[in-house]
Amino acid sequence: MNEDNINGAKTLLKAMSYIDDDIIEEAAEPYKRRSFGIRQGAGVAACVALIAITAAVLYATLGNNLYTGNSNSADGSAGNSNGLLGNTDDTYYVNGASLTPIGKSGNRYTFTLSITEKQERIDVSLYGSGVDEYGNDIFVISTTAPYAELTHIPIARPKITVDGKAADEIPTDVGEYEITVDFSDIDMSKYLMRNYFTVYPFGNIFR
């Protein structure tokens, strides 16, 4: 990288201050996933139609046995596709660890965590959006708080229980654990909370 390169980059970074107000504003707003465009909508509609036709053909060919004869399979596949907590067929795998949601009681969620190789970090986060009176546009509840200091993102911490004992964080060492994450004491009323958790590194799990 030469001097001209760096000077050019500095000029671009400085020039970013002069982009239009509406672009700055848009990026400051809480992010909402927008509705599908016509092209994506058409794609989804085509997929739905294809699945419906395939199901109809299979139904006509194999009869009711396809659905009534194997209820476990039907339940299991539905569970895996939407990751519903409480469905014991759901297990989420990453290298060296697996996570199985095993129950829900109010805003308390229980998982079984199995670690065969030490993990760098494991955390459960739940996001909400909606501008409060202080202009905060996103609300985060997380078992770790990497952004806690000097961020305009308010952060709350749920209670964590590991094998029935209160803990500060979710374990990352090799072992089998029963983890409970309890959001009951956190006021989420000002925010529109997402209907799924992000459980790093396993992915998103619907609440």
Partner: peptide
């Protein structure tokens, strides 16, 4: 900022502003 400058310098490439 340092990371952004590194990234934006790729964008500038061999050119000058």
């Amino acid at each position: 900022v340092t990371e952004s400058l590194d990234e934006l310098s790729e964008c500038v490439g061999e050119d000058t502003i």
